[in-house]
Design a binder for these strands. Structure first.
Ligand SMILES: [Zn+2]
Ligand SMILES: [Zn+2]
Length: 806
DNA sequence: AGCACGCCGACT
DNA sequence: GTCGGCGTGCTC
C-alpha cells in the first residue's frame, strides 16, 4: 500500500484472478473502513492468514505489470537502506496519476418521500441533492458549514433518504488528436466526382475537400487542425462535412511531448577525450562504477555520448542523471542533436500526464525512451534493460532528497540500480565529491582523469582580491574593488560578457524597521518573512503564510519599514551607475519567475543582449556561454564560514564550477574572487584549481573530526508543536543513544530554523565508525526508537531518520 | 498517512 | 447542550 506502514497486506483473489495477476500489477482494494486505495501486488501465494480474514480485492487495474521485478528489488533496498516503509518508496516512485484513491459520493434515494422525518441539517443535504445529483463529503461539509458530517450522513442513510458510494476517478487523460478521413461512402472515383458537384454551392466546404485531397497525397493521416489551417476554414465547416457523411473524425492517442528535428553523427573525440574514453572502457572491464574527473570544459559530454551510442547499439537503455537545475534546454538540445527522438526527458516540472507517458514509454521499452535524461526521481522509472547510467555533476547535493521520505541519494541509489541490471555506471564531475574520489582512490571505483580543456583552451586565470586591504586603501566602490571594476571594463571594451556571482545566503529580500531593527516574523515559523515586490506582500518560505506589506512597524509603531532587496538587486543598481552604457541583467528568484522567465534571461544573455549578468549559483549549472571572459565572485567568505562539515568542500566545488564559466572559447578567461581572507587554504586551492591538495587536506580533517567518507552519519530529527515535549524527548533520546554509541552521538541541536509550521525541531547525529556495521547500528537505533515510542509522552513526536544525511 | 472513535474544554 | 480539538488505535 502507498502509505508509510512497514507491513504488507493480504487480500484474497479468485482462481481466475490468481492466474491473471502478476507481481507489479496494481489492484484497487478496500482499505480501512470505507476507502478504496491503489495497492501494488507484491507477492502472490496460497497461505491464507489465520488471525484475520483477508478481504477480496475490488478490481485489477492493469493487464500487465506496471512495475517490474528489478524495481521491486530496488525499492526494497531503498526502504531498507534509508529506513523507511516500502509504501513510501512506492508512493515516491509512481507518477501520482497511477495512485488512484476513492472519494465518498452521496446520492439521493429517489424513492424517499418522508421529508418531514428529517432534521434541519439532514433536510439541507437532502434538498441540495434535488439540484445536484451527487455530492462529495467535502461538499456536504461546505453546505452545512461543519467539519463533522458523517453522523448526519449516516442518519440519512438509516432513514433511507440517501446512499453513498466510493468512486475512483482516472486521473491520467490520454491526449487525443482529432484526425479527418473520407467517409466510407466516398471511396470510389464516381462518388468523388459527384461529391464535388454536390458541393459547388458550398464554397468553403468545397475548398476543404479539395485541400483534403491535396494533403492526402502525402499518404499520412490528416489532422483536423492541419486541414483547417491549410484550407483556411473554420472547424464548423469540417463539422458540417462530417454531418453530411462526407468526412468522418477519428482520434489517435498521442504523447504530449514529441521530438521533431534531425539528428547528427557524433563528433569525433580529440586525443585526450579519446584517451579518457578508452580508459573508461578499460576500467569497465574490471569495475562497474567509474569516476571521471574531467575539468570544466574538458568535453565530458562528448565522451558520454560515445558511450551512450555504444550501449544503444547493444540494444540497451541508458539513464543520464543530472541535477534538477542543470537540466536546461541547452543540455537537452545538445543531446537531442545526436540522439533525437530516442531521448525522453523526465523532470519534476513535468505534468502528471507527461510523467505517465514517459513511464509507459520506458516500461514498453519504446524507441523514444532508449535514453532517459532526468533528474533525481528518474531512477524510479521502469527500466527493464539498462546498459549504462551516467551521473553527471556527481558531487551535486541536490541528488539527495530530504523531504519527504524516502530520503535517498539518487547517485547512490543509481549505483545499486546499475548492479541490479548488471549495467555500468559512470560518475562525472569537474569537482568530485570527496566520498566518490575516496572510493576511487580506494580502488572501489574505476578512475579516469581528463585534465585538458576542449580546444586546448587554458583554464582561467584566477585572482584573489583582498577586500580588507582595498577597504583600508579606500579602493572599494560599494561592493566592488577597483581591480574588479578594471577587469569588468576591460572585458566590456573587448565586447565580451561578464558574469558576477553573489551568494544567496543572507540575501533574501526581507523587511526591517530602521528605528528598532525588528523584522516581521512568520507567526508559524522561526524566520523573517520575505518581501515579494511584485505583489507587494510578505511571505514565508517554509509555510504558505502571506500578508499584505504593513505600513508601520509592529514592534515600535514607527513607519520606517525598509525593504532590503535581493543581494543581486543591490549589485545590479550599483552596476547600472558604474556602467551606464551597458546592459545589466539579473538572475534570481525574482527575475526568473514564471514559466519562461529563466529561459528568457538565458536567451538574452546568449544573444548578447546583456553585457553583465548578476546572479546566484543557479547560473553556474548546465550552462555554457562562449563569450564570457570574466567571472567575478563578489563575496567568497560567506560560503567558507558556513557551519557544516562539508562547507569547505562545497565552497571549493562552487567556486571552481563558477570559474569554469570563464573563457570557454579561444581566449583565456579571468576569474576575480573578492575576499577578506585571501590566505584561506580553500581559496588558495581554488586559485590554482588544485583538487588533489584540497582533497588531501579535507580528507585529513574528515578523519580527524570523524566525518564521511570515513564515518557514516545518521541524522535523527524530532518534531512537535510543543517545545517542551520535543526538548524532553530529545534529551531522553540523546541519553539512550549515548548509552549505546557514546561519544559518537552529537547533539542535541536546534537547526537554524528551529520552528516550521508551528513544529519545533531538534536534531541528533549518530556517527558510525568505519568498522562498525551499518545494519547493526540501524537495528540498535530502531530498538531505541521503539523504546522511545513506548513512552506515552513521546508518542506524538514525529521521529525522522535520515541515513547519509549530507 | 488517513480515518474513526472517544474524551474534554469552550462557546451559543 | 453541541462543536471542534486532539490523542489513540487500526488498517488485510
Ligand atoms: Zn512560516
Ligand atoms: Zn520598529
Amino acid at each position: 500500500m502507498p502509505i508509510p506502514i512497514q507491513k504488507t497486506f493480504t487480500y484474497s483473489v479468485t482462481d481466475e484472478e490468481y492466474n491473471f495477476l502478476k507481481k507489479g500489477m496494481r489492484v484497487a482494494v478496500s482499505f480501512g473502513k470505507t476507502k478504496l486505495f491503489t495497492g501494488l501486488v507484491f507477492n502472490i501465494h496460497q497461505k491464507a492468514p489465520i488471525l484475520y480474514e483477508a478481504k477480496d480485492i475490488h478490481q485489477i487495474l492493469d493487464d500487465k505489470p506496471l512495475v517490474n521485478e528489478h524495481q521491486l528489488k530496488h525499492w526494497q533496498w531503498i526502504a531498507n537502506y534509508y529506513i523507511c516503509a516500502l509504501g513510501d518508496v512506492f508512493r515516491a516512485s509512481l507518477p501520482s496519476a497511477f495512485l488512484l484513491e476513492s472519494e465518498t459520493i452521496v446520492y439521493k434515494n429517489e424513492a424517499f418521500i418522508n421529508e418531514n422525518e428529517l432534521e434541519d441539517d439532514e433536510f439541507l443535504i437532502f434538498e441540495a441533492l434535488q439540484h445536484q445529483s451527487q455530492l462529495t463529503i467535502h461538499q456536504v461539509a461546505d453546505i452545512l458549514g461543519k467539519k463533522k458530517v458523517m453522523p448526519i450522513v449516516n442518519e440519512l442513510i438509516k432513514k433511507s433518504a440517501i446512499y453513498i458510494q466510493e468512486k475512483i476517478y482516472e486521473q491520467y487523460k490520454p491526449k487525443l488528436v482529432k484526425y479527418v478521413r473520407l467517409h466510407s461512402d466516398y471511396t470510389s472515383d464516381d462518388s468523388l466526382n459527384s461529391l464535388l458537384e454536390d458541393l459547388s454551392r458550398a464554397k468553403k466546404q468545397r475548398v476543404a475537400v479539395l485541400t483534403f485531397f491535396q494533403l492526402s497525397t502525402s499518404k499520412k493521416p490528416i489532422k483536423a487542425k492541419d486541414l483547417e489551417t491549410t484550407a483556411n476554414v473554420s472547424s464548423a465547416v469540417l463539422k458540417s462535412l462530417v454531418d453530411k457523411n462526407i468526412f468522418e473524425f477519428y482520434e489517435i492517442q498521442t504523447d504530449r511531448i514529441n521530438f521533431k528535428g534531425d539528428t547528427n553523427t557524433l563528433k569525433t573525440l580529440n586525443e585526450f577525450q579519446e584517451k579518457a574514453y578508452s580508459e573508461i572502457k578499460e576500467t569497465f572491464t574490471k569495475k562497474d562504477v567509474t569516476l571521471l574527473h574531467g575539468i570544466t570544459s574538458s568535453g565530458k559530454t562528448e565522451i558520454y555520448t560515445k558511450l551512450i551510442q555504444e550501449v544503444l547499439d547493444d540494444g540497451k537503455q541508458v539513464l543520464f542523471l543530472l541535477p534538477e537545475i542543470a537540466l536546461t534546454t541547452q543540455i537537452i538540445t545538445r543531446l537531442q542533436f545526436y540522439f533525437g527522438e530516442q531521448i525522453s526527458v523526465f523532470h519534476s516540472k513535468y505534468s502528471m500526464n507527461e510523467r505517465v507517458e514517459v513511464w509507459n514509454n520506458v516500461l514498453e521499452n519504446k524507441t523514444k525512451a532508449q535514453i532517459i535524461l532526468g533528474a533525481r526521481s528518474s531512477i524510479f522509472l521502469p527500466f527493464s534493460n539498462l546498459g549504462l547510467i551516467v551521473v553527471d555533476e556527481e558531487h551535486e547535493t541536490s541528488y539527495k532528497q530530504f523531504e519527504p521520505s524516502p530520503r535517498y541519494n539518487a547517485r547512490d541509489a543509481a549505483i545499486v540500480l546499475s548492479k541490479m541490471h548488471q549495467a555500468k555506471i559512470l560518475l562525472g564531475s569537474a569537482t568530485p565529491s570527496l566520498e566518490s574520489y575516496f572510493n576511487a582512490q580506494q580502488n572501489k571505483y574505476g578512475f579516469v582523469v581528463l585534465n585538458r580543456r576542449f580546444n586546448n583552451v587554458q583554464l582561467p586565470k584566477i585572482e584573489l582580491i583582498d577586500v580588507k586591504e582595498k577597504h583600508k586603501k579606500k579602493e572599494m566602490k560599494g561592493h566592488f574593488s577597483d581591480r574588479l571594476l578594471k577587469l569588468i571594463q576591460e572585458a566590456l571594451d573587448e565586447k565580451e560578457q561578464v558574469i558576477l556571482f553573489q551568494n544567496r545566503r543572507g540575501y533574501s529580500p526581507i523587511v526591517e524597521c530602521k528605528t528598532c531593527g525588528v523584522a516581521p516574523q512568520c507567526p508559524n515559523c522561526d524566520v523573517s518573512l520575505t518581501f515579494h515586490k511584485f505583489r507587494h506582500e510578505l511571505r514565508c518560505h517554509y509555510c504558505s503564510y502571506q500578508r499584505a506589506m504593513p505600513n508601520s512597524c509592529s514592534a515600535c509603531g514607527s513607519n520606517t519599514l525598509d525593504t532590503k532587496g535581493f543581494g543581486t538587486e543591490q549589485i545590479e543598481l550599483e552596476l547600472k551607475e558604474l556602467f551606464p552604457d551597458y546592459k545589466i541583467g539579473r538572475m534570481d528568484l525574482d527575475t526568473t519567475r514564471g514559466k519562461f522567465g529563466y529561459q528568457k534571461i538565458i536567451g538574452a544573455f546568449e544573444a548578447r543582449e546583456i553585457d553583465v549578468l548578476v546572479g546566484t549559483q543557479m547560473l553556474s549549472k548546465g550552462l555554457d556561454f562562449d563569450n564570457v571572459t570574466l567571472v567575478g565572485i563578489l563575496n567568497a567568505d560567506t560560503m567558507l564560514n558556513f557551519p557544516d562539515f562539508r562547507a569547505h568542500e562545497r565552497a571549493y566545488q562552487m567556486m571552481v564550477q563558477v570559474s569554469g564559466r570563464a573563457g570557454r572559447n579561444k581566449k583565456q578567461g579571468n576569474v576575480a574572487i573578492q575576499t577578506y581572507n585571501p590566505y584561506h587554504q580553500i581559496l588558495q586551492q581554488v586559485s590554482t584549481t588544485n583538487y588533489t591538495e584540497m582533497y588531501k587536506e579535507q580528507l585529513q580533517e574528515r578523519w580527524q573530526f570523524k566525518y564521511p567518507p570515513y564515518y557514516r552519519l545518521i541524522k535523527i530529527t524530532l518534531k512537535h508543536r510543543d517545545y517542551n515535549k520535543v526538548d524532553s524527548g530529545v534529551n531522553w533520546l540523546f541519553k539512550a543513544l549515548y548509552a549505546s554509541f557514546g561519544e559518537h552521538v552529537l547533539g542535541p541541536t536546534a537547526p537554524a530554523v528551529s520552528r516550521i509550521r508551528n513544529q519545533y525541531i531538534k536534531n541528533i547525529v549518530i556517527k558510525i565508525p568505519p568498522k562498525q556495521s551499518l545494519a547493526n547500528t540501524k537495528n540498535q537505533v530502531a530498538k531505541i526508537k521503539n523504546t522511545f515510542e513506548a513512552v506515552k509522552d513521546f508518542r506524538p513526536i514525529r521521529f525522522i531518520m535520515d541515513v547519509d544525511a549530507y
